[in-house]
Structures are given as C-alpha cells and as structure tokens.
C-alpha cells in the first residue's frame, strides 16, 4: 500500500523533463529497453543499461531509496534460478540476477514518471474499452481495499484470530476474513459504480491531463532506446 501510494505520488506530482514527455514515448522506450535486456547475454551490456536507467531515475529526481526497495524483490526471487545457473558459471548466474533487476528498474522508471491514467490511455488504443474501465476502477478501489484488509487483519489479531504455530485455525480464520472482504468488495464496487454514474462517467478513459504534444525530446528519448537495442544486437 505504502509503495503503491508513493509511486502514484511521484508519477503524478513529479515535474522533471522525463515526467513531461508523452506517455507513449516512455512506453516505447521501456519496450525497447526490455527487449534489449531480454536478448542480451552480456553482463557488461545489461550492467550498462542498468547504469543508464539509474542515471535517468536520478535525472528525474526519483528518490532511489524508495525505488531501491522494490528492486530487491526480483533480485531475491531470481536468486534461486541464479544459483542453478551458477553451477555452469558464476557469470551466467549473475546475468540472471542482472536481467531481473534491470527489467524491474526499467518498469520502475516507467511507472514513477508516468501516471497510471496516462498508461491506461495508451493501453486503451489496443485493449477493449471494458478492460480499460476495469483497470481504472480496480486501481482506485485497490487503495481502499488494501486499507480494509489491513484493518481486518489487525482486528483479527486483536481478537485472537491469529496464533503462531496454529496453522489450521489461522487458515480457517483467514478464509473467513477473505469471504468477508469479497462481500465488502461487491458492496463497494456497487457504490463506486453509482458514484461514477452520478458524476457523469459513461465509460472510456477520462482525459485527466492536457494531452502533451510530441516534442523533439520525445523523439530523442525513443532514439536512445533504439540505439541501446541496436548496440546490444550489434556488439
């Protein structure tokens, strides 16, 4: 919850050059960088890409301490595969970790410099309207829902519903809590639908922000990603 709200805040209130680029150019950049990371088998290449990404994050005034924590998750989970690969060579194992962390950094750069609505707007060009609506509803509801889950867990623990080493009782209580949350979420979605209707929403993505124009910087940003991809393939 904390990270989600923080990312939301950084992406919406940020005012760097990268924040002011068009969402579509940032998404193309992210796509090319992702392909570069996937196709590359060189630790130098991936390391170089990671340095570039960190450089852009710093340039965009994204607090590295906040996003650094998020990189730890893929690093941790890729460790298992990395250990297997390390039986072949140490470098192969390191590449697995670098690929996971590099891809995560790439996505972090995208979501901390582009608001979720702008990302959905680009996605709406390819996805059915209904699906984009679902994304939009779900995203707003998520914050409220997570708050409710936190409160429910707190109340469950305070009422003795969670005890260490009592797996079966815990599972039973957690299952009950999930059931309650499902009912809450149905109620909540109903109320939110009513509010959306009363506020004039009749479907489709809302034009939250003034649509930015394609500027030279947008082309340059995309060009950098193309050069990186070409560099990875050629060298």
């Amino acid at each position: 919850m904390h990270h989600l709200a923080e990312i939301d805040n950084i992406s919406i209130t940020g005012n760097s050059v990268i924040h002011n680029l068009k969402a579509v150019s940032k998404m193309i950049f992210a796509l090319f960088i992702l392909i570069s990371i996937v196709v590359s088998d060189s630790i130098v290449h991936i390391g170089g890409i990671m340095l570039i990404l960190i450089g852009i994050l710093v340039f965009s005034r994204i607090p590295l301490k906040t996003v650094g924590v998020l990189v730890l998750y893929p690093a941790f989970f890729s460790l298992v595969f990395a250990l297997i690969m390390m039986q072949q060579s140490f470098e192969h194992g390191l590449i697995v970790i670098f690929k996971a962390v590099g891809a995560a950094l790439n996505m972090i750069l995208l979501i901390t410099t582009t608001s979720y609505v702008d990302i959905f707007r680009v996605l709406s060009l390819f996805l059915p309207k209904l699906l984009v609506d679902i994304f939009l509803f779900t995203y707003r509801a998520l914050f409220i829902f997570i708050d409710q889950i936190e409160n429910l867990i707190k109340s469950m623990r305070l009422r003795g519903g969670y005890r260490a080493f009592n797996i079966f009782a815990n599972l039973k209580n957690v299952a009950g809590a999930i059931g309650v949350m499902v009912i809450h979420s149905i109620d909540m979605s109903n109320r939110m639908y009513q509010i959306f209707s009363l506020r004039g929403y009749s479907g489709g993505i809302i034009n939250w922000h003034e649509d930015k124009k394609f500027k030279l910087l947008d082309f340059l940003y995309v060009l950098i990603s193309i050069i990186i991809l070409a560099g990875v393939i050629v060298f």
Binding site: D8, T13, Y116, F143, I144, F196, I206
Partner: peptide, 17 residues
C-alpha cells in the same frame, strides 16, 4: 468520501464531472 474521490489528483477530481 474515499469511495467518491476518483481523480488521480485533487485538481482532476474537482474537474471530473
């Protein structure tokens, strides 16, 4: 009101309707 605030920022929410 948590369920009523839809916009990503306060400005956007006031402008929503």
């Amino acid at each position: 009101v948590d369920e009523q605030i839809i916009g990503p920022t306060v400005y956007d929410d006031i402008a929503f309707t």
